[in-house]
Every structure is written in structure tokens, then in C-alpha cells.
Design a binder for these strands. Sequence first.
DNA 1: GCGCTGATTGATACAATATATCATTTCGCG
DNA 2: CGCGAAATGATATATTGTATCAATCAGCGC
Lengths: 172, 172
Amino acid sequence: MNGTAPMYKATQRPEAEAQLRTLERLETVCRARGRRVTRQRRAVLRALLAEGGALTAYELLERLRVEDGRSTPAGVYRALEFWMAAGAVHRLESTRSFILCEHPEAPHPGQLLICRECGQVVETEDKGVAAAAHRLGEQLGFVLDRHLVELTGVCGSCRARGRAAEPGRRPA
Amino acid sequence: MNGTAPMYKATQRPEAEAQLRTLERLETVCRARGRRVTRQRRAVLRALLAEGGALTAYELLERLRVEDGRSTPAGVYRALEFWMAAGAVHRLESTRSFILCEHPEAPHPGQLLICRECGQVVETEDKGVAAAAHRLGEQLGFVLDRHLVELTGVCGSCRARGRAAEPGRRPA
DNA sequence: GCGCTGATTGATACAATATATCATTTCGCG
DNA sequence: CGCGAAATGATATATTGTATCAATCAGCGC
């Protein structure tokens, strides 16, 4: 996982600091709404932040248990639900996992692009896709309030790497 | 979900006959590929056809058991997997249920519009959405091979009905 | 600081969804 | 018929997600 191997999945990400600020901002917003940001909730967010990618609820649970043996599935799901309501976490339906939101300020319908090789998830706010979806809904008489768009494939770096050698992968 | 609920969802649909022809066509295609269309698989398809909407795997199982008490979860999932591979059934990730494909000939990426009031699911092959998604993938260097687009909201008839009276609903 | 109140957690149990394994049966075919 | 691949049956188990309720905690007015 290091040395010559490309550190394509940074553990020390430059965005980390920015996301910590985001975290603080989220807390402020929550408190303003009378919601509390507690130890457990913070722990969930930190675990996702540290992972830098998607985790299933039970993977998350394992990590939380390292620090607090009393963590339970219910607790994890409650925290995840809390953050999803706040727009800070997304659920990836296609992999049944959860990931930190990269644009917690924008409450718009987003899209998720998932690399099946390395598990990388890219979140976008593409106007084109959103508009096309909205138009489609109108055509069919629907008033839409939830846009689930998950596009799966292979990312650029995995294709580049894949051409040469064979796998040493970790699909999410 | 229970026996006392009103049968508001038609069991005799005009499209049923056309879909039965589709079924035959599917069987032909499958056989040509060396896949078999068996009693159990046919039963799964017929149950979905009769329902006229989405069913979870276990709802499906209940129905199958009426005719064959030996049906098991594994069997149902195997049949569903088979038909999904053949493009005849879709899985709705957002509701963890399965539905008959309305355009089994087209292997294109489709979209599903889901009414949260009546559970109706409309399947489309919208060029606009598909193109926008494809373009987005290109921009980000992804080669996509799976497009999951599920748009949830309220359909026209439910909005019309909803204005007047109050609920008696059954979200899928 | 005290005590009220509602939010949150801990603990436990359980529901819902999905897959693994392996012996047996069925199907298509020569 | 009889072979081999495909499919099933039966069973067990893994994974994912909720319900319940008592105990605790955080904020708030006093």
C-alpha cells in the first residue's frame, strides 16, 4: 500500500482540514435548530472523514467500537439518520453504505459516481442531469422530491492502471 | 401488506396480454442462450405481472408459497437474479423491491419514477437524462456501465386526489 | 446550583433483506 | 437411455435495519 505504489487514496487529505471546518459549521447549524451534536454523532462523522470513502453501517460500528465498546447498530443508524437529515451524509443505495457529503451547504439533488474498482465515490451537482430529471418528472406529471442518481463504472486512474497489470483491488 | 386493504390496484390490466407475449419472447431468448425458463422462474414473473407493481423478495415469496409451499428465499432471489440478468426485472434500490421491466427489449439505461403515495412505478428510457449522465461520466473520466436513476415524488393522480381528502395510502 | 423537560443514549431484542453450501433433481442433448 | 450442466430444495447463516423502553444527559428558567 505504499513505497512505489501510488498513494491514490490519500489518508492525509488536503481537504481534511476544510472538512473539519465544515464539521464545525454543521454543528453550529444544528444547534441553531435545537439539534444537538453529541459525542456519538461526532464520532460517526469523524470515522467517515477518516475513512475518506464509503462505509457500511456495520463497518462504521466496528470502528466506533474501538473507542467505545458500547456502540450499537441502533446508535450508528440513529447518528447516520441525523446527519443525513442535516445533509452531511449520503447513503449509497447501490452499495448500502454511507459517505460524507462533499457539499453540505447545497441541498440540491446530487449525483454519485462510483468506481467499482477502487470504491472511489465522486459527488457532483450537475445541472444537466438535475434539469433533465426534473423535466422528465414534469412530462409525466410527477412532482419529484427525491433524486437518486448513482452511476457506476470505472474511474480514470483505475482504467489506466488496469490496462497494464491485473487486480489488487478493493471494490467498496 | 394485509388482507383487509381495498383492492384498489387493478389485477386485470390491458397490458397483461402484451406482457405475456413478452414473456414468451423472453423465454425464447433465454433458451437460445442455453438458459432455462423453469416453473419457479415463470412463477416469479407471473407473480410480478399479476401484482402490476413492485414487490419485495419476501412479498413475492409469500405469493409463491400459496402455490408451492417449498419456495424459499434463496429460490426467489435466484429467480430474480436470473430475470434481472435477462433484463426482464428491475430492482428498485430505494424501496428494496422488484418490478417487471416494461421494455425488456431495450437494454438501455432507464429511469424509474416512483410515486410515494400509491406506489406506482413508471419506467422510462429518457434520452435527456441518459445523455446528461453519460456526459457527466465523461467529464469526470469515468466509463459508466450502470445507471441507477430513481426519482421519487407524487404522481398526478395522487396529487389530484390528495387535494381533496385525506390518506388511506399504501406507499410501496 | 436545582430541578424541569425533552432529546439522546444504552441495552436488548427482533425484523427485514440477502447469501452460502451441498445433496438432489431436472433438463437438454447426443 | 445416460451423461453433464443447470437448477432446485433444504438448511443455515450473514447482512442490514428497527422497535422498545428505561436510564441519562443537555439546555433552560429560576
